[in-house]
Nucleic acid binder design. Structure first.
Lengths: 212, 212, 212, 212
DNA sequence: TATGAATGAGTCTTCATTCAT
DNA sequence: CATGAATGAAGACTCATTCAT
């Protein structure tokens, strides 16, 4: 096969740009580590820069403030959650599983999501004074998730809850918070499998209940 | 007339002690107000002392550190929660209500608990770097609550969940977190009555389900 | 004579208050020295605190910002200038000197005013980013001075300038700026006595001129 | 055809040099704009480079420091002033105006000089920590100007001030400072025409006065 | 020569805590 | 016991300048 010199529709990342990308990633990873280890307040920008192996000046070349680092980290997390949700919905539709199977997948996914650096997530979500914009984005994402879940549940005749929209909101919040809490206190409470099973069971019971 | 030296079963509050009590209370109330309004990090000890109407030196006479104030505040909250739980359990036993009625009482009580100064509670619980000891006390209280709840549920034959201990843990955590979240984001999500009703419904469905 | 215990209508300065006064003075003097030696930008608050023999924290207990120090210094200067002006006007009226004698007194006073730490004055007036409020006060003071001068000049029949208000403004600004400049560049230009004499001559000629 | 190597009396501007010239000009103009808008301290070299459309590296290729930019700008201003002075003297000699007409021309020219970017001039003159060398140049220029003025005044028999050298120094400084001040505070003080007229009147009265 | 990412010393400022009175 | 002036470590952030490419 002949390798033609490729035409570049969009300019290839030059080394300089690649470097910048790498620096941003280093900084973000460093911030994640530092916040995770020390909390938001005690995680100083100087420490983050040092951990990233760059000078404090460089940190501020890429992020205009300490807060910006936290926001970037949180946005990554949000995107990750949305991706997982979409993947789950898609798979549930494609594979036409039972309701229980679908819920199991959901719970497993959310546990996995909260499993990575749970302390960091907690810090970003609770300990960090976020700009209103980000806070709103968070709530909006949760609302969007609830809507997607409602849509999906509509496909299951076993789901007999009379107000699907409300039920979906409750379900999403329940999973989000219990799952978060589970990850935040490892070893406390039920063991992992039991916790997942109980959570699924609770959702299933709730959703399939008919009476008011 | 002979003045008999009174027997004191418990040492009578001398004016001095009474004064100290009052100062402690003023400080705690001031701390509650300041943390609630500004958050933990921005709530400075000087502001708290000022608000309490005492000097900063006096504050440190009664509380060895800023953290100690937060801990004391949190302990108050914890005690309040336990009191409510006990009251609820007692009443449920005494009045022999239906399971649903009992759950309604529980949920209503927890909503009420989280309703007062929800921001402060959030700050104390999430934003404050607490010593491990306090954290453990929190978890222990939750465990104790779960045990009490399990005990209570045992009285209801409709509760068919095969592992009551586990179910109680799940129930307590679900109520605690959803209720906390509900208070923390007023106006977001479901309206109050709907939320309470759905939460009760979820618990009831979960607990009365029979199969594994 | 019997010394009666004096009634204190206003509470006597307690040692504590006296101490605070002294600290403020130390700080102001230190700021004057540091700004004078290094300029506004290079005169750091830490250096000022160090020079004053107090900690940086103490500095900020008395002055909320670096700017506040500069403003306080400038206000002192302004007050000093007003005091001199009033003294001069009063003396001129009381002693009923000749116009020339009065002008000589004025010029001498203004030279003396600008003679102390001329660099500091220059720094405060020109190099310091002052809040608008202070800037306005400066201009207002100059206007007030011009009005007082106009009032005074009205008493001298030799003053034949047809528009006294305008003449007074010109006179005040001329004296202010030339005098400031003279102090700022010691040794440059005319010797002191010659400068004072020429300035008086210029004012006298200007004010006594009749034609348009 | 034989290409004769051209004699270059002065090295021809090569494109490269022309480019360099243009870059220097761009940088100076950018510096002028930035200092004028933000002041010396807040006018960062990065902003200047950006405004000039070149990289910060290029800026430092042409100017070794931020200060060097300010100095270059000030030197331009100085040259401009000298040019104006020479033009004025030449014209006064050639047109043989009256003393008053000559003074009017002088004052008008100085007002015009200070009229362009008065804030910038103020910043360069007062806010910028200049090297001694530049400061001396400034004073020297003023001395030279005074000498030229003295020379010119010698031609007017109405000028009866007994020490022309001194009178010229006073006159130059008066015009320089009042004019500067006038431009720096537009709207404050007298209206433009009145100011110019009064200044001329003051100079004329001063210079034509006879007695000591 | 031009570039611009990287540097890091240095600023102002805050605030929990102490201790002499 | 109460007071509150004093402390000073520490933090977020800026910006003139350098140098590898």
């Amino acid at each position: 096969m002949k390798r033609t010199k490729p035409e570049r529709l969009e300019p290839r990342k030059t080394p300089r740009q690649r470097r910048a990308r790498a620096t941003v990633d280093d900084l973000l990873e460093a911030a994640a580590q530092v916040f995770d280890a020390l909390g938001y307040a005690a995680g100083t920008t100087n420490r983050i820069a040092e951990r990233a192996g760059v000078s404090i000046g460089t940190l501020y070349q890429y992020f205009p403030s300490k807060e910006a680092l936290a926001v970037a980290l949180l946005e990554r997390h949000l995107e990750d959650g949305m991706r997982r949700l979409n993947a789950w919905v898609g798979r549930a539709v494609a594979e036409s599983r039972s309701l229980r199977g679908t819920l199991e997948l959901f719970v497993a996914g959310m546990i996995a999501l909260h499993d990575e650096r749970p302390r960091l997530q907690h810090i970003l979500l609770e300990e960090t004074p976020l700009p209103a914009r980000v806070h709103d984005a968070l709530l909006a994402a949760e609302r969007a998730a609830a809507e997607q879940v409602a849509e999906l549940l509509r496909r299951y005749p076993e789901v007999r809850h009379p107000r699907l929209a409300e039920a979906a909101v409750m379900a999403v919040q329940t999973v989000e918070h219990l799952t978060h809490r589970f990850a935040a206190h490892p070893g406390q409470g039920l063991p992992r499998d039991a916790f997942a099973a109980e959570l699924v069971r609770m959702l299933e019971a709730y959703l399939t209940r008919a009476e008011p």
